Simulated assay, not measured.
Amino acid sequence: MIITDTHTHLYSEAFDEDRKQMIGRAMEAGVSRFFIPAIDSTYTISMLQLEKDFPKNVFLMMGLHPTHVKDNYEEELKHVEEMLAKRKFYAVGEIGIDLYWDKSTLDIQKKAFKHQIQLAKKYGLPIVIHCREAFDEIFEVLETEKDGALYGIFHCFTGTLEQAHQAISYNLKLGIGGVVTFKNGKIDQFLNQIDLKHIVLETDSPYLAPVPFRGKRNESAYIINVLEKLATIYNVSFEELAAITTENSKVVFKI
């Protein structure tokens, strides 16, 4: 059985004390594929080291996270472009719009998002979207870029059934993580109306730990709790759900 974590920040400072042990725990739990989103250029060296340490298990993305779109965003986007031109990445991400922390940067967040979507198309790569309090703004940009070359994952999906269908209409899978286990998460109430072919698993570790670890540091091994919840929602076996969601991840990342 292969379990795939399509979104985990294994290079995070939160894991500096026990990174290899934490990854070892995930592997013991059956998680053997880790897809690593970028944040900004300051993490690139750590990401490359992670890939070097776990070459058969770690797959890197490249991109500029929306909360890190600042005054120097054009310089950061140049770094993204240079890295994409230099070597293989499996997605452009995580990219998108975040209006929770700072609404004043909306215009440049949109520019950075759109530019990186176009980079993904240039290299034939999927995008991995970060959205926080910005569904309308995200969909507005996606509408302008909608074509046969646009595809990827709507990471940490927390929207409504209607928003789920809209995301899927842009050829995006829904990344489902710890939120599905929360009492107030709401997505558990309608997910069974979404075909499993549109679902991939993620942790977003070290963030958004599932119940019963909510509020603590998340890690990739906890994807088991997400799997168990989804198996209940869809009324399928743990093993079948692991197989389907891993296959879905292969469709997106082509590996």
Rank of each mutant, 00 (worst) to 15 (best):
I199P: 04
C156Y: 04
A167V: 00
S12E: 14
Q109N: 04
D16W: 12
R132C: 05
E219M: 00
K86Q: 15
D204G: 12
L227H: 04
Q116E: 06
V128T: 12
K110N: 00
D71L: 13
N171K: 13
L50G: 02
F135W: 10
M27V: 03
L196G: 11
K250W: 00
T232P: 05
K254S: 11
R33Q: 12
L48W: 08
D98Y: 08
E82I: 11
F113W: 06
E94C: 13
R132L: 05
I187L: 08
E133V: 05
I117G: 00
I45F: 12
E13A: 14
V211F: 12
A91W: 05
E17I: 02
H7L: 01
G152T: 12
H9G: 08
P37N: 03
G215K: 01
E82T: 14
I117A: 05
I153T: 08
L48Q: 13
D71P: 11
S205K: 06
A38S: 15
I95R: 01
F182P: 02
N171A: 10
W101D: 13
A38L: 07
L172H: 08
P212M: 01
T44L: 15
Y11I: 14
S41L: 13
E81W: 04
E137N: 04
D18G: 05
E51K: 15
K173P: 09
C131T: 15
T160L: 04
M83V: 14
K110L: 00
A231H: 09
L77V: 00
K111M: 10
I39P: 11
E51F: 01
K20W: 08
E145N: 01
Y90H: 13
D188M: 10
E133F: 02
D107F: 05
S249Y: 07
H198I: 13
T67D: 09
K103D: 11
V179Y: 07
I255D: 11
R132I: 05
C156Q: 01
Y207R: 11
Y151H: 15
F34G: 01
V180F: 02
Q116P: 02
I39Y: 05
G178R: 03
N192V: 03
E94N: 11
G124W: 01
I233T: 07
V251S: 13
V226A: 13
I255Q: 03
G185I: 12
A112P: 06
D16Y: 12
P37C: 04
Q163H: 07
N192Q: 13
S249C: 03
T245F: 11
P55G: 09
Q193N: 04
E219I: 00
E76A: 05
T160Q: 07
H198L: 11
I199H: 09
Q166T: 14
D188G: 14
I244T: 10
P212S: 00
F15K: 04
L125Y: 02
K103M: 09
L150W: 12
L241M: 10
Y43H: 15
L174Y: 04
F253P: 12
K183T: 13
K186D: 14
H198G: 11
F59Q: 03
D98L: 12
L150Y: 09
F15M: 05
Y43N: 15
E28H: 01
P55V: 06
D18C: 06
N218M: 02
V251F: 10
T245Q: 02
L172V: 13
D204L: 08
N57M: 09
A29E: 13
